[in-house]
Design a protein around this nucleic acid. Structure first.
Lengths: 192, 192
DNA sequence: TGATAAACGGAGGCATCCTCCGTATAAATA
DNA sequence: TATTTATACGGAGGATGCCTCCGTTTATCA
């Protein structure tokens, strides 16, 4: 068989794909525990892979961090799609927001990491803003359509509120507060 | 002459004081250019001092950073006191706020550094919050007393607004925007 | 002018960063 | 299936940074 077009490409090697996955998973753990300046060699070790392999897949620390972040955002997006099939739309929205809080809370290093994003690649910012807005919109629209909550709060505002809740909370043990604030806010969205 | 009290203390050595000064100055430059994780050995080099000397004066990176930050806050405090002798109180206020913008703008690494403070020692937070609030109060009160601006904006609110202006601005070339916002805000404070 | 408390500098041991390249292996080809 | 070859792998190695330790220097005090 001849090449399909000018750009002859082999199928990517299976080990390459596998290693990429492993690195991403390891990086999520290591960054979560140690913040965004954690050792990359630790990431490679955790992934059971040579340091060279890490650098081939992710040439810079930022590239790796970006990939991890994108992955997390994608997971939240998938969660939103699952929750969109739940019976109670308001509950679904609440659960998704709480999942956000838990995500950030569990991975304490992520807070610092998020602040780097705030000053980093605007590609990444645009991507995650859109993806997150869509996720919220999905859940919000359903609840609005069901006539259960008010219709004058756009998804962007809800996203910004969420970020505000994260940012305002300083150090330790803020998770309960954040969860409460989410609760209050969702209740506030309810039609009376 | 006998010791004045139980805690006999020699006069601190002149070279010690001098080196401390030099380190502080060097650290301000290095951190400004390279952000809060810049090399401490570079700081020592820049100060013309051994690395051991740096560590004796500032046992941790945070200690050094804290000292730099305190120093900057103190400088702003002194500037406020100077400006309090200017003829036009509203202009004085405006100048002080603009000095803040310029300080942060010139020292781009400081932005990241500030974010660390936000999650760091609450001693430092308390100190700088008070010192900054006082500086603003000094200038604000004079302008209020002169009957030139409204009296229902407390210094704390102005400080938070300032921080908000810094935080909202993302990456490059935000200085003009920030200066404009300060202008708008000061004009808004004026009685009509 | 000594005596001495205090400060100095930088070598040294360890960790991390990132590059480079010989080796290994999965996909393509025959 | 056997061979070829593009691709990926791993980790040694040189550079840099962190921080400690301690022999040497020096400013104060008497």
């Amino acid at each position: 068989m001849r090449p399909e077009n000018a750009k002859t490409r082999r199928k990517p090697r299976a080990d390459s794909l596998r290693n990429r996955e492993r690195l991403l998973e390891a990086a999520t753990q290591i960054f979560s525990a140690g913040g965004p300046q954690a050792s990359l060699e630790a990431v490679a070790r955790q992934a059971g892979v040579g340091i060279g392999t890490l650098y081939r897949h992710f040439p810079t620390r930022e590239a790796l961090f970006e990939a991890v972040y994108r992955h997390e955002v994608d997971l939240l997006g998938e969660l939103a799609e699952e929750l969109a099939h739940e019976d109670d739309p308001v509950e679904a929205l609440r659960k998704w927001l709480q999942a956000n809080v838990r995500l950030v809370a569990t991975k304490k290093g992520m807070i610092e990491a998020l602040q780097l994003v705030a000053h980093g690649s605007s590609d990444l910012k645009a991507y995650s803003f859109e993806r997150m807005t869509n996720s919220i919109g999905l859940l919000l629209d359903r609840a609005v359509a069901a006539g259960e909550i008010r219709s004058d709060v756009p998804p962007e505002d809800l996203l910004r509120t969420l970020v505000g809740i994260f940012y305002s909370q300083g150090t330790t043990d803020w998770q309960p507060t954040a969860l409460r604030l989410v609760d209050v806010f969702v209740d506030g969205l309810r039609k009376r």
